[in-house]
């Protein structure tokens, strides 16, 4: 399978503090890649750097290169809006705009002429069906989106991202603020989407990663400890930290002898 993202010696900084330090990583085209690791390890920062959403933060800067489809995403000729349309991102907490459900779904495409030809209604119906929200909201598309439950709102946010027509979807802990049932619905949806597009998802839930991942990237303390096929990593972690994390034991004191 071809590679989609390639990070070479990528360091990400907020001010002078490196959040990710000299990461080398490839993410392949297609399938679901899970980024896991303890909180504060830099998972979200890494994810957000893939479509340059960190650029919005005042004191952010980076070193090294991030290639997308063999092209440097910081290349001067690259159109940032184009990149973000190809590489969509869904935040941890859904942020709906004031306005109706329909307005929200088409928020990212209202100004694109080709999409208008296709018809916003058609696109809205297709994406809402894709996220399994159509049956719940089809008779109140024009009512305010604010009234939706948290789980519905997150699915609407995914539909909004899909409406733009991305080839890749980045998900930043999309279920962390949801109840169990809504979380399961999102997981099923992600699994489904993973068949047709590339998904990169950050999660701190190990079960979720095991259920979804084709590939796994394990990060701790700003470094990529291990990356590869999910089956391998979950069964034979090479790295001590990965192993401890997966087995749920506390991080080891490196001065102690390796327990057999």
């Amino acid at each position: 399978m071809s590679e989609l993202f390639r990070l070479t010696k990528t360091s990400l900084y907020f001010g002078n503090t490196p959040v990710i330090h000299e990461a080398n990583l490839t993410i392949k085209n297609g399938g679901i890649t899970c980024i896991i690791g303890p909180s504060g390890a830099g998972k979200s920062t890494l994810l957000r750097s893939l479509n340059r959403m960190n650029d919005l933060i005042a004191d952010f800067h980076h070193k090294g290169t991030i290639m997308y489809n063999n092209r440097d995403i910081y290349d001067k000729g690259l159109r940032l809006e184009g990149l973000r349309r190809e590489v969509g991102l869904v935040f941890q907490k859904p942020c709906l705009f004031p306005g109706s459900i329909h307005d929200n779904v088409i928020f990212g495409i209202r100004h694109i002429r080709e999409k208008k030809k296709e018809g916003f209604k058609v696109i809205a119906e297709r994406t809402l069906k894709a996220v399994g929200l159509w049956d719940e909201v089809h008779n109140r598309l024009d009512s305010p989106a604010i009234g939706l439950s948290e789980g519905q709102a997150q699915r609407l946010a995914i539909a909004r991202a899909l409406a733009v027509g991305p080839k890749t979807l980045l998900l930043d802990e999309p279920t962390s603020s949801l109840d169990h049932r809504s979380a399961r619905a999102i997981e099923t949806l992600v699994k489904e989407l993973g068949r047709t597009m590339t998904i990169v998802i950050v999660t701190h839930k190990l079960e979720q990663a095991k259920a979804l991942a084709d590939d796994v990237v394990f990060i701790c303390e700003g470094k990529i400890c291990e990356a590869g096929e999910a089956a391998n990593i979950f069964s034979h972690p090479e790295n001590i930290e990965t192993r401890c994390y997966i087995e749920g034991s506390p991080p080891l004191d490196p001065t102690l002898p390796y327990p057999e």
């Binding site: 969509g88 991102l89 991202a161």
Partner: peptide, 21 residues
Amino acid sequence: HKYRDAALVLGLGRWHLIRTL
């Protein structure tokens, strides 16, 4: 802030960010 982020992440350009949000 989240509104601006949510708009930009959809690939809206500066002008459309201004116009729609």
